[in-house]
Computed example of a mutant assay.
Amino acid sequence: MMKRIYPRTGDLQTVYLNAVVRDPSIEIGDYTIYNDFVNDPCDFERNNVLYHYPIHHERLVIGKFCSIACGAKFLFNCANHSLRSLSTYTFPLFYEEWGLNHTDVASAWDDKGDIVIGNDVWIGFEAVVMAGVHIGDGAIIGARAVVTKDVPPYTIVGGVPAREIRKRFDTDTIECLLRLRWWDWPIEKIRENIPHILNGDAENISSSNICKDL
């Protein structure tokens, strides 16, 4: 876990997320950042992780080296209304009013599961990720996209609902990167390979044979 909150001296708009998140059901990888120029980025849990109530025991999992832009939201299952019911009204939630069993509160909504974000994912300005969505490593979520379905690794999506725009790289390069998993390397090894990472030089990264063997 990151020990310091702010990656840059004098920049109070950008934080290392796992330095400010306290909820144990929210798991954030090292070096993942959140930028907010409207609200205090330290309030990410309250302002950006919505309808995430303890009654449902669901998780938000975000990998390492992700970049999350201002206003991105993660909407959990308690925001849903059950589509199995003849009515979208949440009767079980107001059990006292309607004389219902309080243990059936969770039947007021459909359960789509956890939200799981891979590593090195960029989530754009005011994008919304819905309950149950899994986003693969290296994906990019466009500004104000509403993500209702899983996103494959290294895929760019955008729109409402979000749809695939294109792959970031060719199939061989994507396979190479998924095998390399550079984000799991020791920090010094990552530091040594930053020139290759920045230049898009997958074949020579870390002088590895992983990509050359594909």
Rank of each mutant, 00 (worst) to 15 (best):
I190R: 11
D110P: 02
E192W: 08
N101L: 05
D120V: 01
K167N: 13
M130Y: 10
L17I: 14
E175I: 08
W185N: 04
S85D: 12
D184F: 02
T171M: 11
T9G: 12
E203H: 14
N47I: 11
D150H: 15
I26N: 02
I141C: 03
N39V: 08
V160W: 02
Y51E: 12
F76P: 02
L178N: 07
G118A: 07
Y95R: 00
V157N: 04
Q13H: 14
L214I: 15
N101V: 02
L178H: 00
F44R: 04
E97F: 04
K112D: 15
K149Y: 11
N39G: 10
D23L: 03
K149Q: 14
H56R: 15
I117V: 12
S107Q: 11
L12W: 12
S85C: 09
D184H: 07
F65D: 04
G29Y: 00
F125N: 00
D40G: 05
P7I: 07
I33H: 01
M2Y: 02
R163E: 14
C66W: 01
G113F: 15
V20I: 13
C78E: 12
K73H: 11
S208M: 08
L180F: 10
I190S: 06
D43W: 12
D23T: 03
I140C: 03
L198F: 13
S85R: 11
S67F: 04
P7F: 10
T155F: 01
Y53C: 00
I165T: 05
E58N: 14
Y31G: 01
